[in-house]
Design a protein around this nucleic acid. Sequence first.
DNA 1: CCTACCGATCGGTAGG
DNA 2: CCTACCGATCGGTAGG
Lengths: 181, 181
Amino acid sequence: MSREAILERAVDLASLEGLEGLTIGRLAGELEMSKSGVFANFGSKRELQLATVQAAAERFVADVIAPAQEAQAGLPRLRRYCEGYLAHMERAAFPGGCFWAAASAEFDDRPGPVRDAVREGIAAWLGELAAQAREAGMDDPEQAAFELWAVGLGANAYRRLLGDEAAFDRARRAIEERLAE
Amino acid sequence: MSREAILERAVDLASLEGLEGLTIGRLAGELEMSKSGVFANFGSKRELQLATVQAAAERFVADVIAPAQEAQAGLPRLRRYCEGYLAHMERAAFPGGCFWAAASAEFDDRPGPVRDAVREGIAAWLGELAAQAREAGMDDPEQAAFELWAVGLGANAYRRLLGDEAAFDRARRAIEERLAE
DNA sequence: CCTACCGATCGGTAGG
DNA sequence: CCTACCGATCGGTAGG
């Protein structure tokens, strides 16, 4: 079993159970491996968590960021980012809902390398949104990035907790109005 | 040690460690009680979790909802709700950040009574926001409630994960623009 | 409210 | 990659 294949399952499991609930024993059970077989690939639970965050970032880049590079920098790419971001969550790219929403809520008060890795992933995404907002000539790109990101976070929580698929329509409407300004 | 005093600590601990990370042993340690002494007050971990959600709801009502009843129904009360909501998170009414943001991310994919209780608390808050938006004459009160709530959720995450206190200024600016429409 | 205990599971190690 | 094990902690119980 390759490290890559293990991490595929680790990301899915972490989106469901959290990065702390991602236990080596449970992951081993799902992969039909021994605990120590999984353990040996990482050396510690912390390294498993860090590798899982990295794998989730790669999935997000492949799914959302890379395809949007076809669009022109500025407003067109910003729209593609928002569409990709919502579509990514809507089709449940992670079975437990957005990995990043779950990971940031879980680790925002646990200082250490895992928290730092989660923060860097989210900061990179906010930075991408702000860069395109700046390119589009918006007067406060960081403000726009914050608002667009918050709407996505809200849609994920609204759908997952309330079971209301209208969450994404609401998010699209909010984003449309924000970008039409 | 009264049940109420135990629940005070339970809410704080849950905001830091999550409702699953709120273990009976750890809570007992902080209260300098025996595990079974804490346990006997609730009968099961699930009952402790449910009582903790209830206590968090009471804290939110006392802190945010009740004071806003002084304001006139409609836009004035809606503004007070938003101000109270942000101030509640900004001064860290829960030491681990907004209890509800953490609890919804943790339980959104764990069916059962705890999830139901979290959902009901959040649905009640969204309903309050929508009711005032309707009273204020807004044309899609649920949409407004969704957007205002999402901005608060975003501000909590932005501040806690990125350590940026500007999160709340950004949230206030976004809410101001939304309500000025 | 307490001590003392149960089986299960945790992260991690020894040795192969 | 495996079996077998470690001490710690989990939710929960017995008995007082």
